[in-house]
């Protein structure tokens, strides 16, 4: 359903292409205040795979997701994305890796309310190297149009509905055409119709990006390729097909 974002060289060429980055996790532990929050002995995903992380509230799903994003330091073990060990990256290098490789969708959109939908989706252009800015804005505009917000590019984020705001955050995550997409409860704040549309959008990304989504939404789980259930910070069983 959805196509890959454009590049600077070929902004009009938007045919779906296989993509994504392979994920390899080994012996990952995340601790805080002397308490183990996540313990994941092993996890492997091939490029372009989609994974639903499920489990009860407080099980450590979001903590795992943020660890995979390099936002929470691992207490032990290693995480490799596309062969690059992100647990070994520090500070600026890790931020640069996120900027180049990662798109993140948050449960509550996290938009700049007073900025336009396009400026929000193209947020990365503000700090990207000058040569990449035009492509980023093109990509942001492309995804907003593909997600049905083509007539609302200049509208302030504050004036958009919850579903529209979530689609802006998806466009922001995809604008730079990253190989990895992480989503934290992406449908939690949406009504059913908006959630279903979003699920269709995310499912359409299969094969073009590696997608890991933390969710309670059975409909989303059903559309993703694999499922990992987390309980008390650890996998409850192995990696299963959804």
């Amino acid at each position: 359903m959805l196509a890959a974002a454009p590049t600077a060289a070929r902004p009009a060429a938007r045919a779906p292409e296989p993509g994504g980055a392979a994920l390899s996790v080994r012996g990952l532990t995340v601790e805080a205040g002397g308490r183990r929050l996540v313990s994941l002995p092993a996890l492997d995903l091939s490029p372009g795979a989609t994974l639903a992380v499920t489990g009860p509230s407080g099980a450590g799903k979001s903590t795992l997701l943020f660890a995979l994003a390099g936002l929470i330091p691992a207490s032990g073990g290693r995480i490799d994305w596309g062969g690059e060990e992100i647990t070994a990256l520090r500070g600026a290098a890790r931020a640069d890796w996120r900027r180049r490789q990662l798109g993140i969708i948050f449960q509550d959109h996290q938009l700049f309310d007073e900025m336009s939908a396009l400026d929000n989706a193209a947020l990365g252009a503000a700090y990207a190297p000058r040569a990449e800015r035009a492509a980023l804005r093109d990509g942001a505009a492309h995804w907003l149009e593909r997600l049905g917000l083509g007539d609302k590019l200049a509208q302030r984020a504050l004036s958009l509905s919850g579903g529209e705001r979530q689609r802006v955050s998806i466009a922001r995550a995809l604008a730079a055409d990253p190989p990895i997409l992480l989503a934290d409860e992406p449908t939690a704040s949406l009504d059913r119709a908006s959630a279903d549309r979003l699920i269709a959008d995310l499912a359409g990304l299969a094969g073009t990006r590696t997608l890991v989504a933390v969710t309670h939404d059975a409909a989303l789980v059903a559309r993703l390729g694999r499922r990992l259930e987390i309980r008390d910070g650890a996998p409850a069983g192995g990696l299963a097909d959804a």
């Binding site: 936002l71 600026a92 931020a95 640069d96 993140i104 996290q110 990365g124 503000a126 700090y127």
Partner: peptide, 16 residues
């Protein structure tokens, strides 16, 4: 603080 944390989460350089 939340907006600034978002920028950092998205990979904005510390200098930005």
């Amino acid at each position: 603080a939340r907006a600034l944390a978002l920028l950092r989460a998205l990979g904005a350089p510390g200098r930005f």
